[in-house]
Design a protein around this nucleic acid. Structure first.
Lengths: 226, 226
DNA sequence: GTCTATAGGAGGATAGAC
DNA sequence: GTCTATCCTCCTATAGAC
């Protein structure tokens, strides 16, 4: 085996370990909260001692940051990408909702953490870039709404701030579906398929924002992303 | 001064003290979370030592319970009362939204705590009665939706579970408006009047749930409660 | 009803052996 | 890269004086 290959393999093993710790941490943070989770619990979950965690991470907060980082940055990337598509606002809005729900389903722990620890993220300057990304995500959604108003698909007297806040809170707090009191894993997200949820939320939102004369139009399909 | 009068006045003073502690605790719990708040901080806020708190409360959790108890029980009472009004479902739904927003505005700290600590409430058997009340509130809302479907005001293919979850999450997570990162007190709730918010949410929700042929009808006013 | 004082434990994090 | 061992701080809660 060549040196380069061995180095790659070693790095991979190290990354695996890190990843396992991160997953345990994310599970705990999502289910019990950041403050309520101790480094000893995380260490127990991966069968090492708490001190050994600090070989992989400098602080508990670093674990928190890594547990949500990609989810937040991808969320912005996705929203901006969809907002920039060359299509009408309704299709964009449906696509935003579908992709957001898909991300939520695929990374429910990260989403639960982002949502539940939002006060902490806002207070701690280390997480400023996360809050910035969140804000930019919000603005991408808002631009879609405003496009729809301009082009007449959405009704003109919409308050875009309140509307997007309401929609995003409605969707994001769905991460709360993660694990019910009885320990059952996913509740609504498990009982409803992604397609069913997309249809529900897209319908719910579109009926609210559409201009009156478009009320009877069918809900468009989401755009396929490259 | 008579003995009875003096006793009443003494009790009042004691209750005042308890109340002051409770308010300090609620403020901290709402802003930083239950776990992140220490009894010392609460004690500092009311200028006593942490040990003295235990003359008024047995545990920190007792403070938590008392900080949210009335808000949750009143919420159920209110929802059941509105659901039982002798009027149409649309009016009931608008009334539910208006009264919920009014309660949210009036007791924003309690609402923020209920929302943010819901995992803790669900896990701890001491708070089972709170979870029961929350569920009954949910059922009252749901009964209104189902009345509307039966009577033809709301469209027939509604999923009442998803719909009420979405609406309640949208409204309740508004308690997050409590104090922004810059310390400004209320954000949206401060910038928008209760009437404006009621109008917004009632419109948003009604457009979504109404049957197609009622889309153009005006949004009814909320019922006045006795 | 608040104080002083402290019990008794758990928290995050570190140092150095292996 | 994990272990042993441990630091030191902070936590909730208690006991008893005033």
């Amino acid at each position: 085996m060549q040196l380069a290959t061995r180095l790659v393999s070693a790095r991979k093993k190290k990354e695996d370990r890190r990843q396992a710790i991160l997953e345990a941490a994310a599970r705990r943070f999502a289910e019990f909260g950041f403050e309520a989770t101790t480094v000893r619990q995380i260490a127990d979950d991966v069968n090492i001692l708490s001190g050994s965690l600090y070989h992989h991470f400098a602080t508990k907060e670093e674990m928190l940051g890594e547990a949500v980082r990609d989810a937040v940055l991808d969320q912005r990337e996705r929203a901006q990408c969809i907002a920039a598509l060359p299509c009408d606002a309704e299709t964009k809005l449906v696509t935003l909702i579908r992709e957001e729900l898909a991300a939520l389903a695929g990374r429910i722990e990260a989403y639960a953490i982002i949502f539940n620890e939002r006060k902490l993220f806002r207070r701690n300057p280390d997480f400023l870039y996360l809050m910035k990304a969140r804000k930019e995500t919000f603005e991408a959604w808002r631009s879609v709404l405003e496009q729809g108003v301009l082009e007449g698909q959405f009704h003109a007297r919409i308050d875009s701030y309140l509307t997007i806040s309401a929609i995003m809170r409605m969707l994001n707090s769905g991460a709360d579906w993660y694990r019910h009191e009885d320990g059952s894993p996913l509740d609504a997200l498990a009982e409803y398929s992604l397609e069913a949820l997309t249809e529900f939320y897209a319908g719910f939102v579109l009926r609210s924002v559409r201009s009156a004369e478009r009320a009877a139009q069918p809900v468009p399909a989401a755009a396929e992303l490259a």
